[in-house]
């Protein structure tokens, strides 16, 4: 009888045994303790907000080398902060929750008007500080201009985006209509990457996107070039700037400006950061560069952000 029990136990053990490691400690799932509040580390990081021009992941990939560069330059950790909309980032800048922000052109114009958002620098692309809004359609679409997109599905990027919403709205207004009446349906993708993909996958019949983002996306994913084509290009627009809260400490503001303006492809860190961003460098810029955009926004009229 004892032998039988022994055999049975061995058998059951053999049946139950499997290769998965098991922790020795018993976890008590029903005994819940309050979570500890995260202790503040001694060093306060530099908080850098980046508006959602491209997807959150794409933003990290593009901006992390620059963050590393700034961290090294300023000898303090840098935290990359993202939000879904431009408005949320503007809000972070206004309330001083972030020290510096990469915003969209129209977000700057709005922030400037609202609380005097201050320009720190602007990226230099192909020797210029301008960009364009490009109207794209699927590669096999017969559309030649905005007029051909009547009663189609149109993808906007962000409600506050100059290239993704203000410019196409202006085009529709020039045709004597409003987006609500002109298009069969519109939707927001909240970043330019997704708008391009929406067109490539024919989820939308058209979209207007940031030319810098479009070029960068095509460079990374050549398939997109075969799936989409540009049917219209806007006049040059002031490039999305780097901004700060007007109340930021002047010393930090100067350090940041110097760090950005001094970034050079001569150093490996600088080269990596610029390559990831797809820009040549950063230059100082003044509010005058955005006059044309302001005029365009006025033309676009009562488009609420």
């Amino acid at each position: 009888m004892r032998a039988f029990r022994l055999i049975l136990t061995t058998l059951l053990l053999a049946l139950a045994g499997c290769g998965t490691p098991t922790t020795a400690q018993v976890v008590h799932l029903s005994q819940l303790h309050p979570l500890p509040t995260n202790a503040l580390s001694g060093v306060i990081p530099l908080r850098v907000a980046v508006a959602a021009v491209i997807s959150p992941k794409g933003t990290v990939e593009s901006y992390q080398p620059l963050m590393d560069y700034l961290s090294a330059k300023l000898s303090r950790p840098v935290e990359l902060v993202q939000r879904r909309t431009y408005a949320e980032v503007n809000d972070l800048v206004e309330k001083g929750y972030v020290d510096v922000a990469f915003v969209c052109t129209s977000a700057y114009i709005d922030g400037y008007a609202r609380f005097g958002m201050e320009l720190l620098a602007a990226p230099l692309v192909k020797g210029e500080t301008v960009y364009y809004s490009v109207l794209i359609v699927p590669a096999d679409s017969p559309a030649q201009s905005m007029a051909d997109l009547r009663d189609k599905v149109f993808a906007f990027t962000d409600p506050m985006s100059t290239s993704g919403r203000m410019y196409p709205t202006l085009l529709v207004r020039e045709l004597g209509s409003t987006p609500d009446q002109f298009f069969a349906r519109t939707f927001f993708t909240y970043n330019h990457d997704d708008a391009i993909r929406a067109v490539a996958q024919k989820l939308a019949d058209g979209a207007a996107v940031d030319s810098l983002v479009y070029d960068y996306a095509l460079a990374r994913d050549p398939d997109l070039a075969r799936q989409t084509r540009i049917i219209q290009r806007s006049p040059s627009l002031g490039i999305p700037p780097v901004v700060v809260n007007p109340g930021l400490r002047p010393q930090l503001k100067a350090e940041l400006r110097n760090a950005l303006l001094g970034i050079s492809s001569a150093t490996p860190d600088g080269q990596r950061a610029l390559l990831a961003l797809g820009v040549d460098g950063f230059v100082a810029i003044d509010d005058g560069a955005y006059a044309s955009v302001r005029a365009l926004l006025t033309q676009a009229g009562a488009v609420s952000p």
Binding site: T20, P21, T23, V27, L29
Partner: peptide
């Protein structure tokens, strides 16, 4: 991995 918990194996 498998955890021994008070509610069985997880």
């Amino acid at each position: 991995l498998t955890l021994d918990t008070d509610e069985g194996v997880v």
